[in-house]
Structure formats: C-alpha cells, structure tokens
Design a protein around this nucleic acid. Sequence first.
RNA 1: GCCCGAGUGGCGGAAUCGGCAGACGCAACGGACUUAAAAUCCGUCGGGACUUAAAUCCCGUACCAGUUCAAGUCUGGUCUCGGGCACCA
Length: 825
Amino acid sequence: MQEHYDFHAIEAKWQREWDRQKLYQVTEDQNKPKYYCLEMFPYPSGNLHMGHVRNYSIGDVIARFKSMQGFNVLHPMGWDSFGLPAENAAIKHGIPPAKWTLENIANMKSQLKSMGISYDWDREVASCLPDYYQWTQWLFLQLYKHGLAYKKKAGVNWCPSCATVLANEQVVEGACERCDAPVEKKALEQWFFRITDYAQELLDDLDKLPGWPDKVKTMQENWIGRSEGAEIRFKTEISGEDVPVFTTRADTLFGATYLVLAPEHPLVEDLIKDTEYARPVRKFVQSVRQMTEIARTSTETPKEGMFIGAYVLNPLTQEKIPVWVANYVLFEYGTGAVMGVPAHDERDFAFAKKYNLPIKIVIQPAEGETLELANMQDAYVEDGVMVHSGEFDGTGSAEGRRKVAAALEKKQAGKERITYRLRDWLISRQRYWGAPIPIIYCEHCGEVPVPDRDLPVMLPLEVEFKPTGESPLKYIPEFINTVCPVCGQPAHRETDTMDTFVCSSWYFLRYCDPRNNMEYAAKEKTDYWMDVDQYIGGVEHAILHLMYSRFFMKALNDFGLVGMREPFKNLLTQGMVLKDGAKMSKSKGNVVSPEEIIHKYGADTARLFILFASPPERDLEWSDQGVEGSFRFLRRVWRMAYGFVREEVKEPSLSQGELTPADKELRRLLHGTIKKVTEDIELRFNFNTAISAIMELVNGLYLYKEREDRNPALLGEAIEKMMVLLAPFTPHFAEEVWCELGHTESVHLEPWPEYDRNALIAEAVEVVLQVNGKVRDRLTVPSGLAPQELERTVLAMERAQAAIAGKTLVKVITIPDKLVNIVVK
RNA sequence: GCCCGAGUGGCGGAAUCGGCAGACGCAACGGACUUAAAAUCCGUCGGGACUUAAAUCCCGUACCAGUUCAAGUCUGGUCUCGGGCACCA
C-alpha cells in the first residue's frame, strides 16, 4: 500500500476494472427483489455542471446501497438530446445539430464516467437517435389512434420579421430575442395531446403517491386547478342562441348585470355583424389578440372592454343584460364567457366602476353589518345569505349554489359542472431538431398516420440553417414529398416536430429494454422493472415533466402496453447548487467546473463534499474550503488504513480473551455508526449526517489506535466495516483500501453490514438533573436503572438537596437513562 | 392576491418521538513538530455577569403570546426570505 493517497491512479484503475468485470450490468432476475433507481437524464449541453454532479451522486449512493442490500438494481443513464440549443449552435457556428449533440454526449459521457457512478452503460439511450425516436413516433401514433392526439388552431408567438414561431422563453419583453421585432400572436394548426381527459385521475392519484414531496403534489394540484361550479346558459335577446358561462358562484346569478365574452369567442362576430358596433369592436378584438400570452395574462395589464350592442336574458329572471367583450376573459378557460356580478367579485366590481355598469347586491353577510350600495368600497366576495333573488331569498350561499343549479337544470338552462385549469398539451414545434410528427397529408385521403412499418420518419441530417431560425424541414423536398400510404398518390409530410417533453415522458420505459427493435419495450421487461422505485431530480420538473410522464403511463396502461398507471413510486427533489448565495451561471461568473474539481481532488472528494455539505432537498452552498475539508478527511482515513496495513496486519491477532472497556467502547461506536448510517440512507436520505457519523467513527478510531492495549483484530474489523459504509459515497477509495486489506472481491459486492444490537448497549449512561426544567447537574449511572432507583440516586445528590432546601417539592419527573426533573416551589 | 416551504454560532449544518441547543465540518485563534514552510497532531471557539482560578449564574434557535415539569420541536398571531401559481370567473 502506498503512503500517499494517489486518487488519480486509484480512480482510473477501478473505473477500468469495474468496466472489465461488468460490475454494474443487470438483467432481470426473478430470484432477487428489483430496485429501479433513476436520475433525470440530462440535456447534453456539452459539460457537466455541479447540479448534475449532485443529482448523480445522490442517485449513486442509493443505487449502491440498495445493491449491497441484495436488490437487483437497475441504474441507467441517457440523453434528452433533442431541443433548441443544438439549432442555435447550428445557426451561430454552422455545426449540424446532430454532430454538435453527439459530440456533446461523448464529452459529457467521459466526464460522467470519471465520476465513477454505477451506471449500466449498456442501457444508454439518446432521444435524438432513430432507434429511440422511432418509438416516440410510434407512441404518438398510439395516442393518435386512441383519439388522444389531435390537431386544432391555437395561438402562437409569431415574429413577422423572422417569419417564425417563438417559444415563450424566446420572447423578451414582447419582442423577438433574435431580431427585436415586436412579437405577434398568430393562430396556427397545431398538434395536441388530450391530457385533460386524465385531469381528474391525475389529481386523484396524487393521493396514491405517499413517497412524493407534498410540495410537488401541491404544485401539480394547483396546476390541474379543479374548480366546482355551474354552467349557466344565457340566451341572446334576438337570435335566442345559447351563451354558456361558467361560475363558481351560481348563488350570485340574480346579481349579474352584464355578460362578458372573450375576444376570441366566435359569438362576438355573429353579434356585431352588420351593426354599428362591428368596426370598433373588431378593432378592439384585433388589438387584444395581438398581445402575447404573457402580456395578456399579466395582472398588470389594465382591464379593458367594450359594449358590443347586444343583450342576453338571465335564464331565471328573463332580465335583459348587456353583452361586453373584454381583455381579461380567457377563451381557453371555462366556456370563454363570464357573467359579471360586480357586487360579489372584485374584478367585476372594478370593471363595473370603470365602465359605469350597474351593481346589484344579492348576498348579505350572515351576521354583522348589512351591505349598502352607497358605501361599498369593494366587492363582498364571502359567502352569505341570498337577497333580491326571488324564491331563493334567505338561502345560504352554499345551499343556494346547489339550488340555483338544480333550478337551471329543470329549465334546461344549466347544470353543475367541474372545470380544470389544466389545458391540453401543445406538442407541435415548428422546429428542426426534434422527433418528426409521423403524419402525412394527402389531397384525397386527408390526414393519414404513417404506418408502423414505415417508422421511423427519419430526420434528414443534411440540412442548411438560415439565420432566421425557421425550421429547415420546410425547405427539404426529399423530406416533405412522399406518397400517401392509403392511395399511393403524391402527398406531403407534417413538418412540425414534437416537444422534447414527449421524448422524456417515456424514457424510463425504454431503459427496461433499450435495444429492442421490435417493440418500444417488451411488456415482460417493464413488468419486471417498473415502477421506478426512486426518482431523483430538480424541482424545476415538478410540474411539466412529471405530469406528462404520469399522463403517458396512464394512457399506455389504457392501451394495454404497461401494467401500471403511475411511473414513479418515490420522488426526491434535490436543491440547487449555489455559489456566493446565487445559482451558478456564466453571466454571474460564479461557476465551479466539476472537471477541475475532479482533476484537483478526485471524484470521491467531490462526491463526498457535495453529499456532506447539505441534505439533498435543500440548496447547497458551494465552498472551496469545504472541499478541502472533505479531501483532508479522506487522507486522514487513508493514513489510518496505511498505518494499519503496514504495522498491524502482520501481527498475530490479540483478540482472544476479555474485551477491555475501551474495546467495548469501540465496538459500541462502530455498531452505532452502522446503525446510524443505515438509517440515515434508508429512512431519511440524510447523507450529510451519515457522513458525519463516519467522521466520528474515524475520530474514535484515531484515539483507540494510540492506546497501548489496543486490539489490532478489533481495529481491523472496524476499518473494514468502515470501508463498506463508505463504499456508496466514495466508491474508488473504499475499493482500493478494501483491496489493500486483502480482499479479492469488490467491496461493492459485499453485503451491507448489520449492526450488533448487543454491542450498542452501554454499561453506563449520563443522566441530567434538572430543577424546574433547567439543567443543574449531570451524573453517570448504570444504564437501564429503574425509575425509582434513578430518582432515589438523583435526589440524594448534593445539588438536588440544595435545590429542595427551604422549598416545597412539587413533583419529580423521571425519564430512565435520560433525566430527572425536580419541580420545587 | 392565492398556495407551499424556510428562518438555529463568523459560515455549511446537527438535535430523527416534547427531554443536555450548537453533533460533524469549515473558518478563526493559541500551541507542538520544523532552519522555515507545507502537511500533521493537540487545544480554544454562541453572548454576557462574577472571579486570581476553579466554579457558579443569567441570556440565547426571526418576533410576540400560549400549552407543558420541560418547547428549536406543539398551538395561535406577526415579520423576513425563498419557491410555485397568478385576470382561472
């Protein structure tokens, strides 16, 4: 064994050796319980950052720990490799996206390998390769065939100067990030997935995920946004056409003094046609439609509207109320129309004040002051008692809502209804670097899905990028022109590609069977490996990625392709890595490169520091000195192991005979550490405290080994066990020492140690004496002393007697092995 | 505005079931070793009062109240910071 801890040589050696032994390759094994440990696959930006290092270090501890516990662990890695940055690089540097992406993957893969993570690299997938996106396309077609993929017109951000569609992130303060031209809204035919069909189940099944953080579940719950209310159908005064509105406050129906349509509502045009209102209303609608989604839905935007010259009838009162159009009503939510009840809705109140619309009180507080129109400063939005509401007068709000809905239903003018904020998932991207949507348009047959046998629809690799950022697919005749699979006539392909979230909604299934070229994944394999036992990733994916994956799983289960309806049993969301209190970013200049750290200190030090500095869910403050500390710790352990191997290992064992008190103390420390580390990993993911427990063990061993009467066999046992405990955290280091201690098989194949309950029992414990809850003294007593005995012993103490002297003893509280509290007055 | 979190030494953090607040580490300071430095080892390390010293006492987990023999931990309220959603009818 070398005196010097040469991490470069050690890490390189073991990475090679593990590879050679295929230590981390797994297959289905019916004799072992399976464990699927998954970290979110990265976008191959080119370089690993500290967030990745943290994510994969956490995952590796769990994977290695479970493996040592006897589980058959699936721990794969791959690349979420479609997406915009590759196109931007192509435009900027003229490198084809495929080349750029594959080079980045190669680079990041070698960085990842230098971390020594226990991935089964044989299962690597990359979503941009045909053998993967073939199945993304196939799954699209499954959704299409089951009516879950459809096309409709939807608004997009459109840059008129670049003639291209922009993602929301590419719109900077209402302008195109590339050319600064003002962004418009444009309606385009786009593909959607019908995720709203699953809204209720996506909501309900959150209760079946006790292993998810509440925070994430709440975020999804809010995103789905279930809202119970009623649909109420008003009728237009002249044509008698239905105008449904959605409201959660049917009890305020009698207070509706106007009705507002969203600017996009088709009825607007019908009602203004050939009237004097046509011109000004169209102008208003046009101006609203040109606003981007972001500007439009900002609370900062002032509420503006316009009377459109028409009236509708309140279905219960037949009262005639004016119809308006206003920018604050969203066409996508509810029915795209709302009734205005100024007295009982803040927004309606402000709108009515601004445009001088009548305000009518129909709810009075159940107790307290009566509302008076004259001195109303705000809407009264609480529940109360219905007034000026005909037969409903005197009814409470909650009951009123049900009764009004029932009355409407009787008249066929409404019913109770539930709406969701969740909208269908827009998956069309007018982009090149994505999975082509496998649809063909034929003049005779219309929209035709590409037959399975023709998959994949290959993305052409020879492409030229124009500086406009427009998708080059539109200009490649060989791609666009094809023949209709139904009639054989000339036809053309869809040029939109899929949102990259589609690719990442099923990758965890592909890992189960990554080389299958007959199926997206064999059901027997997904049946064996799924669900993911532990999923680890950033909280930034709490909503979209996790919701989409849940949706896919439910849909695929409905198609009979997988055996379950939820993909991720347990979820761990790790915090960010900060430097100087801020997220690491190039613009702030506070980036620490993992490559440099690994080069300077080794992967084991990097992993150890990042796991030690903070519990995984919390943000982590990077500290160069902290890294030094972790490095120092490993060297300290190395020196101890080195000293032991050189001095003690040759000596005959002295372990026979009685254990000295120091020996027993050492055993108690060792087994206490095993217990602590096991529970910290398994129950709480508190890797930071697991590591500090190992540090305490090392401190204890240093004291012990200086003793004249030390027992080398015992010391050896402790060092050995400690290497097993360290193996998930610092795999190369533990392996090297393990090997030097004379083992021929990998430490990573070693079973996780059990602790010896008997070793934990202390002979003596320190007990605290409290007087009125304040610590006054300590004493050492034999452990397990009966409460009465303990009380008697403590009361006999000088400090206890002094406390009681001259006072009344009220009571004595005794907690065995812990404390005695004397209450005096 | 609504919905979640979180506030503990100079710093990262610990205290897992209401029972010794500050484990472990970093930084700092003092010492040993050394020609010197690095490395390593030993020691001190929340604030204050009193003291030659030992000891003893008081205060202290954002703030204010409460429950309890006992509160960082439980309850109610306030403040600050972070995150999510945000014209959702």
